[in-house]
Design a protein around this nucleic acid. Structure first.
Lengths: 143, 143
DNA sequence: AAAAAAATATGACAATTGTCATATTTAGGA
DNA sequence: TCCTAAATATGACAATTGTCATATTTTTTT
């Protein structure tokens, strides 16, 4: 569904949401172990997210990655769109260019409703909300 | 969402559903053009599907691929599971091993309902039904 | 029985995705 | 100002997925 990279990115952002803020940053090496992602690979992903203003960072000593208040407002699907590209989740399930209500692909009637509901959920759920669920133990992030 | 291979496989099976039966077979070279899939690649996919009894085939002159009546009863998700593996669509969206109602991943509440509805649709829709929609022009397969 | 036509098996190669390391740039502290 | 600690940029390499070609096996027809 998502690529591995996207799953890693989501886990990392959620970890940052729980453990950082603009006064408390974390280095790659302190993030990679708890979320179980190879360090150099995570660094690359975080840099990508940073370039797209999904996470914040400062260089040098006392630097690191963190989530600003604005960062917390972004939705899960933005992360996926950055890492996997929009097509992977949002386009027609058979990748037909002009699949729509008037000219639906064979799977359109079958899946388009539940699929677009799923996309809508991913669009409307912010990192902040997910982090809240983790804090209140309504959700868990094992491994 | 699906891999390219799965999309190709679905298109091929649907094409077979429309144009073949046990008395009317088609060779790879007659299928690949209308569905726009490279010949040798399609051959490999059809062989895979044939091994898993999703499509039928006979060798030699007058041979070819076709869909038997039983073949028409299979669901879309069986094709995807053969080509992409079960995990890609059916497992937890973050690939957490033991994500369930009691110990949900952070995205569980957000997407699990619409996602499992989508999976259920893919499970309960047979090739026969999809082919029927194509015949009655309720659906289309361009390119 | 031989020839021909088809699927099947195998494997080479390319493109993409995932993994890792190293060199460069930036910022803080002595 | 210089040293050091961090992100950033770049690129090498591996694994997987997608693409294609060829040799083998099976079946029908003559």
């Amino acid at each position: 569904m998502f690529s591995n990279s996207s799953k890693y990115a989501i886990k990392a952002v959620l970890f940052l949401a729980l453990h950082t803020n603009k006064n408390k940053k974390l280095m790659v090496k302190d993030i990679c172990k708890p979320i179980n992602v190879p360090k150099a690979y995570l660094a690359k992903l975080l840099q990508d997210l940073s370039r797209h203003d999904v996470v914040s960072s400062t260089r040098g000593p006392k630097g690191g990655f963190y989530l600003s208040e604005e960062n917390r407002e972004i939705s899960v699907i933005q992360i996926v769109n950055i890492i996997d590209g929009k097509k992977r989740i949002e386009s027609c399930i058979l990748s037909l260019e002009d699949c729509n209500k008037d000219k639906p692909c064979p799977l359109h009637h079958t899946v388009s409703q539940s699929k677009s509901e799923m996309v809508k959920s991913l669009q409307s759920t912010s990192i902040k909300e997910l982090a809240e669920d983790l804090k209140t133990k309504k959700a868990f992030l094992p491994l």
